[in-house]
Design a binder for these strands. Sequence first.
DNA 1: AGCTGATCATAT
DNA 2: ATATGATCAGCT
Length: 224
Amino acid sequence: MPTPPNNEAELLDRARRLAGCALGRLARDLGRDTPENLRRHKGWIGELLEHALGASAGSLPEPDFPELGVELKTIPVTRRGLPRESTYVCTVPLEAHGETWQTSWVRRKLNRVLWFPVEAEPDTPLAERRLGTPLLWSPDAEQEDGLRADWEELMDMVCMGGLEAITAHHGSWLQIRPKAANARALTAAVGADGAPILTLPRGFYLRPAFTAEILRRHFALPGV
DNA sequence: AGCTGATCATAT
DNA sequence: ATATGATCAGCT
């Protein structure tokens, strides 16, 4: 396991050296096996990159690089560089906290992100998929305003007992969807009448249109 | 074809 | 159970 990077420049330098590398070769270099597919190994690419870059937070509720305040996110992309999936951000707090956007977990996580695009053509064997060019990002004022608006609207509903009325259709850039091992995993929340209920754990996700814009601005793909 | 709701693995 | 890492797969 590499030591954690000492600063952002070192992190970005390490990341850039991995651009173009096939997942199978990176795994072999790190002494890891490459699974046939991701069906039973959904977090494999993210964990591989954590290992390769010296991330240290493990499964703690911290950014991947705590000393730098940087979160690592892999992002599956088409050959045109467009995201194939939404991006998980964090769990939704379902019991009222009096939390504000400024202190929110979403904002802390998204304040500084190292995006790592990864080829994700279903026809390409996992081992042959290549890493793209990484990008160190912070939300600009417009992006943060939009995220804050979504977060406040969604969290108002959660705190007012409207959780069960929230679907993935809510939110322009940030949405709330289930985030659970399965449909039997339940957690405490506030029900419609303000009474405690048990419900499916939820997570905040960034819509693909939002991450597409992040990638587009930096790679300026012509004709896409 | 894209999106929403559901699910898989691991560590603590 | 809750945190981490996400993608799967059925429905519209």
